[in-house]
C-alpha cells in the first residue's frame, strides 16, 4: 500500500489538491473490494472474539424445556435439539474455528515459504529432489490425508492446527519457489550480489520484499481455505470435539436434522462460513486489483 501512497505523492497536483473528505471517498471508491472485505473481516473477528462478552450465555448449558425452538426473545437464534442456546454456540463455534484456522494458516504460510525459498536458493539438484517430493505431495488430496490422520487419533485443537498446517502447504511452497526463481535472476538481485550481498541477504531483503504482496494475498486465501477445510472435517465428524463446536459442526448438526427443517440451525452457521470466505477473498482480490493498477 505504501507504493500507491508514494505514487499519489509523486503525481503533481492530482490527489493532493482535492479535499480530505473527497480523498477518503475516492480511496473507498477505488478500493471497494478491499475495504468491504476488511470491514467484513473485522466484524466477523469481533463477533468471534468479543461476542461472548456482549452475549455471555453458556454454549453448553442445556435448557431441556426449550429444546428445538425457533428464534425468540430469550434465544435470539433459537435452541438446538437438546436445548442449547444457538447464538452462544455460534459465538463459541466461531471462536473455535478462528483459533484453529488462523494459526493453521500461519503454520502453512511458514512451511510453504521456507520450503519454497529453500528450493529456489539451493543448488539445482537439491531443488529437483525437493520439487519431485512436492509433486508427490501435491498429488495427494490434502483433505484425504487429513481425514486419514484425524481418524487415527481424535484430534484436539492443537492437533488440528498441526494437521491442517502440515497438509496444506505444498501449493504455496510451489508458488513461492516459482516466484522466487523468477525474481532471483533480475538485475537488482545481480547488482546486490556485486555489492557482496549473500544468498540469505538477497532472500531476506530483496526476494521477500518483492514477493510481499503476493504472499499477503495468499495468506488471506489460506485463512479462508482453512475455515473451509475445518468445516469439511467437522461435517465428516472429525473436527472440534463436543461439547465444544465449530461452525462446520453446527452446520452438520442442522443438516442432519434437515427433515425437520430447522432453518435456524442451518443458516446462521452457513452464513458465517460463507462470510468468512467472502471476506478473505475480497481482501486478497482487492489487493491484487490494487497491484494491477500500480503496474
Amino acid at each position: 500500500m505504501s507504493l500507491s501512497l508514494a505514487e499519489n505523492m509523486a503525481a503533481p497536483g492530482g490527489a493532493l489538491r482535492r479535499g480530505a473528505a473527497a480523498r477518503l471517498l475516492g480511496w473507498v471508491g477505488d478500493r471497494t473490494m478491499l475495504v468491504s472485505g476488511l470491514v467484513l473481516a473485522v466484524l466477523i473477528l469481533l463477533f468471534c472474539f468479543l461476542g461472548a462478552l456482549i452475549y455471555p450465555a453458556s454454549p453448553v448449558a442445556i435448557h431441556g424445556h426449550h429444546a428445538f425452538q425457533p428464534p425468540s426473545g430469550a434465544f435470539p437464534l433459537g435452541t438446538d435439539q437438546i436445548g442449547r442456546d444457538e447464538l452462544a454456540r455460534l459465538i463459541e463455534g466461531g471462536f473455535s474455528t478462528m483459533v484453529v484456522a488462523i494459526p493453521a494458516a500461519l503454520l502453512t504460510f511458514a512451511i510453504g515459504i521456507i520450503y519454497g525459498m529453500t528450493a529456489a536458493l539451493t543448488p539445482s539438484w537439491v531443488d529437483k529432489i525437493l520439487m519431485r517430493l512436492l509433486d508427490a505431495l501435491l498429488a495427494l488430496p490434502g483433505l484425504v490425508v487429513l481425514i486419514f490422520f484425524a481418524s487415527l487419533f481424535a484430534p484436539g485443537n492443537t492437533e488440528l492446527i498441526f494437521l491442517l498446517g502440515l497438509t496444506s502447504w505444498p501449493g504455496l511452497a510451489r508458488l513461492v519457489r516459482n516466484e522466487a526463481i523468477s525474481q532471483r535472476g533480475r538485475d537488482f538481485v545481480l547488482a546486490t550480489r556485486q555489492f557482496g550481498g549473500g544468498t540469505w541477504y538477497v532472500a531476506r531483503v530483496h526476494l521477500l520484499r518483492v514477493m510481499a504482496p503476493i504472499l499477503v494475498v495468499n495468506f488471506t486465501f489460506l485463512i479462508g481455505d482453512s475455515v473451509l477445510a475445518l468445516s469439511g472435517l467437522s461435517f465428516l465428524g472429525l473436527g472440534v470435539k463436543p461439547p465444544m463446536t465449530s461452525w462446520g459442526g453446527l452446520l452438520q448438526t442442522g443438516l442432519n436434522l434437515i427433515a425437520l427443517d430447522p432453518w435456524w440451525m442451518i443458516f446462521p452457521s452457513a452464513i458465517m462460513i460463507f462470510a468468512s470466505i467472502v471476506a478473505t477473498n475480497l481482501i486478497g482480490q482487492g489487493i491484487l486489483a490494487r497491484l494491477g493498477e500500480g503496474r
Binding site: 469439511g232 443438516l255 462460513i273 462470510a275 467472502v278
Partner: peptide, 13 residues
Amino acid sequence: LAAYALPTFFVGT
C-alpha cells in the same frame, strides 16, 4: 466467489 465460499456439503444438502 459465492460458489467458492459455500461449503460443498451445504450445497449438496
